[in-house]
Computed example of a mutant assay.
Amino acid sequence: MAPPSAALYTPTFFLALLTTLLLCASLRLLAILPDTRFSSPPPRRKSGSSTRILIVLGSGGHTQEMLYLLKDLDPRKYTHRTWVVSSGDAFSVGRAVAFEKALEEKAEGEGEQVRGWNIGSAHYDIAIVPRARKIHQSLITTPFSSLYCLWACFRPLLIPTTSSSTSSITDADLPDLIITNGPATACILILASLILKFFNVQGASSRGKCKTIYAESFARVKTLSLSGKLLVRVVDRFLVQWDGLDGVGGRAEFVGILV
């Protein structure tokens, strides 16, 4: 005769269940993080397939460095560009719009050679997310604002905010590449991308989506920024601009001056 079900729910049972869940979660995390023995190689992309890039801007210096980093961006390779900006950062919004306008002006100067260029309002959008922590905000309320920011970061990852009817349906997909250089919003957004990959939402993990490149700020000469310290183990490429930081965290790659 089988024992009553209530007899199964003992402290030992719950401890074993918790241990099993933690073990499964740990193995899954190892599978999605880069450069681990458990991670699988990304699937090969088809030639000519649509490519979406997501760019995280920060106020002031972070934005200026990022735009300089992207000055040679080829609009033929990236079908859609999503710019993520923190709320209240009108400067970064204006700079992103100016960058896209500059691409259009460059295309006008090229004439017939611009066939295949992905430019214009149908090929970019600007997503505004709430700040994870405002200046002088209490540490008591910071976890709540950070969770709100995390929730808001899922939207620009899952679908562009453009309402243009000319936008290709393939643009409304997870980003292929996320690039950032260290604003606090980037930490939250990359956490959101890891959650999508953990649960393989829309094939984020199996299709090799949401790859991340982190370019440490030019101002960081001897030590990593706080964002860099948090992300050095979880991004796919971690680039530094000073040879003194080469190999820091076991992941940093010195690539020379980028900005």
Results as ranks from 00 to 15, higher is better:
108 E>D: 07
95 R>D: 01
211 K>A: 08
82 T>L: 03
177 L>D: 12
4 P>N: 11
259 V>L: 07
10 T>A: 06
174 L>M: 13
216 E>N: 12
195 I>D: 05
56 V>C: 02
103 L>M: 08
132 A>S: 14
26 S>G: 13
12 T>L: 05
107 A>W: 03
175 P>N: 12
186 A>Y: 00
150 L>E: 10
6 A>V: 10
160 P>E: 04
106 K>T: 04
123 H>R: 06
12 T>G: 06
43 P>V: 04
183 P>M: 02
72 D>T: 00
138 S>Q: 06
254 F>T: 09
137 Q>S: 12
248 V>E: 13
78 Y>G: 00
48 G>A: 12
80 H>W: 09
6 A>L: 12
55 I>T: 03
133 R>Y: 15
117 W>D: 00
115 R>M: 13
158 L>G: 13
46 K>E: 11
250 G>S: 13
231 L>C: 05
156 P>E: 05
153 C>K: 06
246 D>E: 14
56 V>H: 08
87 S>H: 04
1 M>V: 05
224 L>T: 02
95 R>N: 12
32 I>V: 10
126 I>E: 00
11 P>T: 07
16 A>H: 11
40 S>E: 08
196 L>K: 06
198 F>T: 08
144 F>A: 10
80 H>L: 02
167 S>N: 05
77 K>G: 12
136 H>Q: 05
189 L>H: 01
103 L>V: 00
30 L>M: 07
87 S>D: 05
147 L>N: 13
220 R>C: 11
202 Q>F: 08
66 M>P: 01
16 A>E: 12
189 L>C: 03
109 G>Q: 07
162 T>Q: 05
232 V>F: 07
97 V>G: 02
147 L>M: 06
232 V>G: 10
4 P>Y: 06
229 K>E: 07
250 G>V: 07
52 R>W: 02
70 L>D: 01
99 F>R: 00
102 A>R: 14
170 T>S: 07
214 Y>A: 09
45 R>A: 09
251 R>K: 15
136 H>N: 14
136 H>G: 11
54 L>D: 05
46 K>A: 07
113 Q>C: 12
17 L>H: 09
203 G>T: 07
132 A>N: 09
96 A>R: 00
153 C>N: 08
11 P>V: 13
159 I>M: 06
180 T>A: 01
112 E>A: 12
105 E>P: 03
247 G>N: 09
219 A>Q: 08
28 R>G: 03
121 S>T: 11
258 L>Y: 15
4 P>W: 03
192 A>D: 01
119 I>V: 02
131 R>F: 13
230 L>I: 14
117 W>P: 01
175 P>Q: 05
165 S>V: 04
147 L>W: 15
212 T>G: 02
221 V>K: 14
196 L>G: 03
106 K>L: 15
47 S>R: 04
6 A>E: 07
113 Q>M: 11
235 V>Q: 09
45 R>V: 06
26 S>L: 05
226 L>W: 05
153 C>M: 14
258 L>C: 05
243 D>W: 03
27 L>P: 06
75 P>V: 01
87 S>K: 09
33 L>C: 14
192 A>H: 03
39 S>V: 09
150 L>H: 13
239 L>A: 04
101 K>P: 10
87 S>F: 12
90 A>F: 10
126 I>R: 00
102 A>I: 11
223 T>S: 08
149 C>D: 07
94 G>R: 04
255 V>K: 08
161 T>G: 14
81 R>T: 00
240 V>P: 02
221 V>I: 12
1 M>F: 07
48 G>F: 04
147 L>A: 14
